[in-house]
Every structure is written in C-alpha cells, then in structure tokens.
C-alpha cells in the first residue's frame, strides 16, 4: 500500500482567478499539514490554469500540480473524476479537500466511490487527532439543526469544505513552492455526460457573496413586489438582496439569490432579515454574518434566536420608516 502523506487541495478558478474557497482551503489545509508535519499541495485542473500556480503558493501551498489540458476546459464529471483519480494515485495524499461548490458537490462523491474511500461533505471544521493522525470532520446535519463529528479510516480521507468556514492566509508573494506539470490522462472517448453550454443568469448590482450588506426577504414579503421594496435599502447600504427557499420556490425572485444550505453562503458585515422565519436551512447560508438584524411580526420566529438586534413589527409598516432613517443617518 502506498504511503499516504500530506494534504491535497483540489483548487478551482473563477474567471481566471483562484476561487475564494480555494484560498480558504489553503489557509485551513496549511494548519492541518503543519499539525501533521507534512506538506500542503494544490491541484489545479482546467485549461490555462497554470498561471494561477504562483497565487496558490502565495496562499500557502508547498506544491502545485498543474493539470492544464483543453479537455478540462469545462467541468465534466467523467473527465474530472479520471484526472483526479490519476492525480491522487500519483500524489497519494493523506487528506483530499474540495470546496462545497457545484464542482465539489458533483466530483467529490463520485471520486470517493471510485477510490473506495469515505468522504464528509460540507465540513465547517477540520482538525487532526494528534494520536491517530486521523482527520476530525465536523459538519452541520439535519438542515443545520445539529452538528456531527466524523472520523474515517480509509485513505485518502476526503472532505468538502463549506465556503467561508476557513480563513485564507495573508497573501505572501515571497513564499516558495514547486510547480509540477501533470498530465490529465483523460480518454476523451470515455466522457459520457457532456457539457453543451452555459447560460448565465446574472443579477444586476453587487454580487451577493461579496456584498458588505445583505437584505434578505422571505415568505412573509408576500410576492415579487415585496422584494422590490427591499431595493432602496440595499442601494443605500451598497448591499445585495437575498431570499429564502420558499420565496424562490414561489418564483418571486431568481434562484441565483437564494441564501441557505442549498443556495449561496454569505457572511456580510450586516445581514438584515425581513419577514423570514430563520429556518435552520436558511441560517446555514448566513449564520457567519457579523451582525444579523431581524424584522418580523412573529415574536416567536426562530430568527430572533439568531439575530443580534430585532424588532417585532409588520415589515410593511416598519420598512419605509427604517429605510428613511437609515438614509438620514448615512447622510450625516
């Protein structure tokens, strides 16, 4: 059996840059690797990704496996599983980390079953047991109502990591690392489910995941018009609008602004929750926010167990004067 050593992060690029989640995993992975006294490597898969190697090293990687191949231009399950299978057999890492992203959600389970190893999805905390050197994997379960801690014996130990659960290291361009060109080894004739095209549904304005403030609405807003009324507050706070799953399922707002377990994970400075109950599955997407403020007419709503400040009020009566006052205060 191979001697499994070190931590391997499966990196991702977004619009030609290293994805935030990858920098976060390099930060978290660095700590794990240091505890083990072993190395931290990152694998970059795609077309034209080699240019990101320097950035990955500055973010904490000791070694970069660059798998630069046109066949990996778009994410396709079969191709990426084949490429990762090759990389893992070559590197023999003790731990493999992937982002809980649309790629990680698809790639990680299929790869784990291919490698006949165990996997914990959507981890928010990872640690090393000093005795056994096992990876201690903490993840929210039951829609965020509970947390579970898992360990696994099979190697490599695999986990996907939730966005914003780990902190990136301060970028250090003086860090040295090694770049290893690695062949994908993908037989294109074995790609079965094929990528045809991507359709963008961009929302205008500030990007939800990067907004300093998020104004989120729920079922209580009653319809698309309710969401329209959040726009002024969002504009004043240079923020973005988010929504709960019921609002999405009712077709009031585009799916791309869903915040929650199955939507986007945000951690803004300020999260204003309006007419939403604060279900566990919604909170899973925003509990990392610095300050949560709630406006809800139900004093028993779960959101008041999560918020820092709140008022019990019907949003229709509270929102206009609140927005007006915020505008006055920001002008001062």
């Amino acid at each position: 059996m191979a001697d499994y050593k070190g931590v391997l992060v499966c990196g991702e690029a977004i619009e030609g840059k290293l994805a935030g989640i990858t920098a976060e995993m390099l930060g978290g992975g660095r700590k794990l690797a240091d505890k083990l006294g072993e190395g931290l490597a990152v694998v970059l898969l795609g077309s034209g990704v080699k240019g990101l190697a320097a950035e990955a090293i500055a973010c904490g990687a000791d070694k970069v496996y660059a798998v630069d191949d046109a066949v990996l231009k778009d994410y396709q399950t079969d191709a990426y599983v084949m490429a990762m299978e090759n990389v893992v057999s070559q590197v023999a890492p003790r731990i493999v980390l992937m982002g809980q992203t649309s790629m990680g959600r698809d790639l990680a389970p299929r790869l784990a079953f291919r490698l006949k190893t165990a996997l914990s999805m959507d981890c928010i905390e990872l640690d090393i047991d000093p005795q056994s050197k096992q990876l201690i994997q903490t993840r929210p379960v039951y829609g965020g109502n509970a947390r579970a801690i898992f360990t696994t014996e099979s190697l490599p130990q695999m986990a996907t990591v939730r966005a914003k659960a780990m902190s990136p290291l301060p970028r250090d361009d003086s860090r040295k690392g090694e770049v290893v060109d690695t062949t994908a080894g993908v037989d294109a004739s074995k790609i079965r489910a094929k990528f045809v095209q991507k359709v963008k549904e961009e929302v205008a304005g500030v990007k939800l995941e990067e907004a300093p403030a998020v104004i989120a609405g729920g079922r209580g807003l009653g319809g698309p018009d309710g969401f329209k009324q959040l726009e002024e507050l969002a504009r004043l706070l240079k923020g973005a609008i988010g929504a709960t799953r019921p609002a999405i399922d009712n077709g009031w707002v585009p799916t791309s602004i869903q915040v929650g377990l199955t939507g986007k994970i945000v951690a803004p400075e300020l999260y204003i929750a309006i007419a939403l109950s604060g279900s566990s599955q919604h909170m899973a997407g925003c509990s990392g926010s610095k300050t949560i403020v709630a406006i809800n007419k139900d004093p028993e709503a779960n959101i008041f167990r999560e918020a820092r400040f709140g008022i019990v009020a019907d949003w229709k009566q509270a929102l206009p004067p609140f927005t007006k006052k915020v505008q006055e205060l920001l002008k001062e």
Partner: peptide, 20 residues
C-alpha cells in the same frame, strides 16, 4: 437578541436604525 421597542412599528423601526 436585543429587542428594540417602540410605540408602534414605525417608531420601533426608527429606533432600530438609531440603535444600529
């Protein structure tokens, strides 16, 4: 959670903004 109170919804909303 710090509950901000007011005479009515509008008053509470203004006080919430001031508290923030």
């Amino acid at each position: 959670c710090e509950m901000v109170e007011g005479e009515n919804a509008a008053d509470a909303a203004v006080k919430l903004a001031l508290r923030l």
